[in-house]
Amino acid sequence: MNAQVQIDAQLRELSYAEAIREAMAIALESDPAVVLMGEDIGTYGGAFQVTGDLIDRFGPERVMDTPISELGGAGVAVGAALTGLKPIFEFQFSDFAALAMEQIVNQAAKLRYMLGGEAEVPVVFRMPSGSGTGAAAQHSQSFEAWFGHVPGLKVVQPSTPAEAKGLLLAALADPDPVVVFEHKLLYKMKGPVPAGHYITPIGKAAVVRPGNAVTIVASAIMVHRALEAAAKLAAEGIEAEVIDLRTVRPLDRETIIASVKKTGKLLCVYEGVRTLGVGAEISALVAESEAFDYLDAPIQRLGGAEAPIPYNPDLERAAVPQSPDIERVARQLAKGEV
C-alpha cells in the first residue's frame, strides 16, 4: 500500500493509459538507455493510445515504430537489452505475443541463467490484454498464466492507474525481463496517481478491502468486479476481504496465506482460462501451506470458460467471471453452502 500513502499527499486523477504514459515519459527523461518499441506507437499513438504523444516529445529514435514483426521485434528488444539499452516493447494485443514466444520464453527468460549469471536482459514487454471489447478469439486472451509458468520472467497485472505507473517503473528498475499485462477495459479508468517517480513493488499483493468472512484473490479487472461484489455482500453483513494480486510471478504467499488464516475461505477470481490458471497455483499454495488447517470450506475458483473468447457480446460476457458470479460464490462460501 505504499503508493496509497503518497496519493493522499498529492491527489491527481489520471487514466490508466495516462499513468502508463507518464511512467514511460519519466523513464525516457531520466535514462537515455530507455527506448520504446512497438507497432504504430509513434504518430498513431499506439492501438490504445497509450504512447500517445510521446513521439512528439522524444522523437522517432526513442519511440520506434517497428514493422509488423512480433518475433523479430521482440528479439531486437532482447538483444538491445542484453547490450545496454532498456527497451519497453509494446505488443499491440497480448495475443500477438504468441508470435514472439520464442524470444520471450527461450531467450529473454533464460539468458541470465544459461550464461551463468554473466548477462542480463532488462527488457519490459507491455501487453494489452483481456476480453470485453468484442474483438473475438484472437484479440481477447489472458495469457498471464502462460508467462507465469516460465522461470526467469516476472509477470505483473496492474488493476488501477496508480499501480499501472508504479509497476511499470518497478519493471524498468528490475534487472530481469518483466511482462506487464494491462487490461484493455481499464485504459480509460481514472484514479489518483502520485506525481513523479515511485515504485509499486513487484511480488507484493495488496489488501484493497479488509474483511473476515471470505478471502477473494483477484487480478486486473477482476479486482473491480470483486470489489463490486464485496460491496453488495457487505449490505448483507458479509465482509469479504479482497486482495489485488498485482503480481502473478512471483506470487505474494505471505499476504494470501495471512488472509486465508483469518477468513478460512478462499475464492480465486481470474480472467484466464480456469483450468491450469493463476487460481490453480494460488489454491495449491494455500493447500500446501499452514493456512490449510484454517480452511472451513473447499477452495473455489472462478476463471475463464474452457473456450476461446466468442464474438457475440452475451457469449463474451458469459465466458469470463462477472460481478454477480463472484457475489454468488463468495456468498455461498461465507454461508457455508459450498
Binding site: I68, A137, Q138, P310, N312
Partner: peptide, 24 residues
C-alpha cells in the same frame, strides 16, 4: 456468431476464413 467480422469465412465456397493475426 462466434467469429464476427475478423473471422468471417464461408468454408463451402472455399473461403477458409479471415484472420485476426496479420500473416496468419
Amino acid at each position: 456468431g462466434r467469429g464476427g467480422s475478423m473471422h468471417i469465412a464461408d468454408v463451402k465456397t472455399g473461403n477458409l476464413g479471415a484472420n485476426g493475426i496479420v500473416g496468419g
